[in-house]
Amino acid sequence: MQSGKHITFATARQHQPQINDFCTATANGEEGARPQPAEQPQTSSDIRTIFGSTPTLRAEVIWVLRTGPDSVLAQSFTCGKDKSRYVAAFGLAPYFKKELIAEVKSSGPFVVMFDESLNHTTKNKQLDLHVRFWKNNHVQSRFYGSQFLGHATAQDLLHHFKEFVQDLDLRNMISVSMDGPNVNWKLFEHLQQEHAEAFGGSQLIVVVTQKNLPNPRTSSYDCLAVARNDPLIMAKFHFFMALSRTFTPFLTKYQTDEPVLPFISQDLTVLIKSLLKRFIKSEVLHNITPLQLVKLDTGDMAARIQLKNVDIGLGAEAVLKVM
């Protein structure tokens, strides 16, 4: 009774339904009398629920119910883990993806979302892609696919991105949602350029203006419409990128569980001074203490450098020179 096998069986028996939950005894009647129909179990009317105390066991019960009644089928049926993986990856997955593509195409405008992260199992970068579209008065967010990457530059991401979406109608793609402002912004520039070349320079705003697509009437669209009419929008983007490169080392350093808090005051001082020196006179910032830095009045025109000397970054300056 102390053996592991006996204990396992005894434990399982406590949760196993008895035969009288399914059948009732019949009194002796005439010869050939047919037994009365079995009563339904009191706990549930679904046999899968009774025997399926765990998700795995429930799946096995359903599988047996499918194959058991047919002896010929049961004799020829084999499906181990390798075959199941093969059927799922090369049989079911292409079918479901084809159905998803058809849904996205019939829905009209859609959004593509992707994220590049490290797969801790394979130790490779993994590119996950999702699509978001409108269906049955609801927003649908669906997984579209994954791909392992090696050295992921903007051109590499563009190559894999194009492979992913080649079956979709990019004329209905109204947005690309990205996970970072650096490499992915370059990817967006490549996509925007190729999109303009592929469709004769027409972009979403133009298509909506020409009433070839309905106005989505969202704040995101309104921001895009305003940005498209702003002649300085590319210069502003490059200025934002310059600022993000200034912030990135600080944010990266303090995204940790290590005890770095004692150094935050000094690092914040360096960060703020590097930002202020773009438009504040150097003599004002020279030998300034952290307390004085906090109390500095940046609205004081006497503390600012001349407008032509404001440091907006090399990228923004290059854009302005060709305008």
Score class of each variant (00 low, 15 high):
residue 7 I to R: 13
residue 185 W to F: 13
residue 33 A to S: 08
residue 70 D to E: 12
residue 159 H to G: 15
residue 151 H to Q: 08
residue 234 M to Y: 05
residue 236 K to T: 06
residue 109 P to W: 03
residue 29 G to K: 07
residue 69 P to G: 05
residue 178 M to W: 15
residue 42 Q to V: 15
residue 198 A to L: 14
residue 201 G to H: 11
residue 126 Q to F: 00
residue 121 T to D: 09
residue 71 S to W: 10
residue 239 F to W: 00
residue 241 M to R: 11
residue 186 K to P: 01
residue 118 L to A: 04
residue 272 I to A: 03
residue 202 S to F: 12
residue 312 I to Q: 10
residue 15 H to K: 08
residue 254 Y to E: 02
residue 139 V to F: 02
residue 137 N to S: 04
residue 159 H to P: 11
residue 292 Q to P: 06
residue 305 I to S: 06
residue 279 F to Q: 12
residue 66 R to T: 07
residue 2 Q to H: 12
residue 278 R to I: 05
residue 54 T to I: 14
residue 188 F to E: 10
residue 176 V to I: 15
residue 39 E to M: 15
residue 216 P to L: 08
residue 61 V to W: 12
residue 220 S to L: 15
residue 216 P to M: 07
residue 227 A to T: 08
residue 129 L to I: 15
residue 8 T to C: 10
residue 211 K to D: 05
residue 295 K to R: 15
residue 118 L to G: 06
residue 320 L to P: 08
residue 41 P to K: 13
residue 31 E to K: 09
residue 253 K to Q: 02
residue 139 V to A: 05
residue 182 N to C: 12
residue 164 F to K: 04
residue 150 G to W: 13
residue 169 D to P: 00
residue 112 V to H: 03
residue 323 M to L: 13
residue 67 T to C: 08
residue 273 K to Y: 07
residue 173 M to H: 02
residue 223 C to M: 13
residue 219 S to E: 01
residue 296 L to N: 07
residue 69 P to W: 13
residue 199 F to Q: 14
residue 214 P to W: 01
residue 135 K to F: 02
residue 153 T to Y: 07
residue 187 L to G: 02
residue 117 S to T: 11
residue 96 F to Y: 07
residue 164 F to D: 05
residue 72 V to E: 11
residue 104 V to C: 01
residue 142 R to I: 04
residue 97 K to V: 03
residue 34 R to D: 03
residue 216 P to Q: 08
residue 217 R to V: 03
residue 146 S to M: 12
residue 69 P to E: 07
residue 65 L to F: 14
residue 203 Q to R: 12
residue 5 K to L: 15
residue 192 Q to S: 10
residue 251 L to N: 11
residue 170 L to A: 04
residue 132 R to Q: 06
residue 318 A to M: 06
residue 278 R to T: 11
residue 6 H to A: 04
residue 244 S to R: 07
residue 232 L to G: 07
residue 4 G to A: 15
residue 149 L to V: 14
residue 125 K to P: 01
residue 36 Q to C: 14
residue 103 E to I: 02
residue 147 Q to C: 15
residue 56 T to W: 10
residue 25 A to H: 08
residue 282 S to M: 13
residue 208 V to S: 00
residue 245 R to H: 03
residue 253 K to Y: 00
residue 18 Q to G: 15
residue 21 D to P: 00
residue 167 D to Q: 13
residue 169 D to M: 03
residue 87 V to C: 11
residue 12 A to H: 04
residue 322 V to G: 06
residue 233 I to A: 08
residue 228 R to N: 09
residue 202 S to W: 13
residue 313 G to N: 00
residue 8 T to P: 06
residue 257 D to M: 04
residue 250 F to C: 00
residue 183 V to K: 05
residue 60 E to T: 01
residue 64 V to Q: 09
residue 118 L to Q: 10
residue 111 V to G: 00
residue 244 S to I: 02
residue 207 V to E: 01
residue 126 Q to A: 00
residue 126 Q to N: 02
residue 37 P to W: 05
residue 18 Q to L: 14
residue 101 I to C: 03
residue 214 P to M: 01
residue 206 V to R: 07
residue 231 P to G: 00
residue 44 S to K: 01
residue 220 S to R: 13
residue 197 E to R: 14
residue 258 E to P: 00
residue 99 E to Q: 09
residue 259 P to G: 02
residue 21 D to S: 13
residue 242 A to V: 01
residue 203 Q to L: 11
residue 70 D to M: 08
residue 84 S to F: 11
residue 196 A to E: 11
residue 282 S to Q: 14
residue 276 L to N: 03
residue 275 L to H: 09
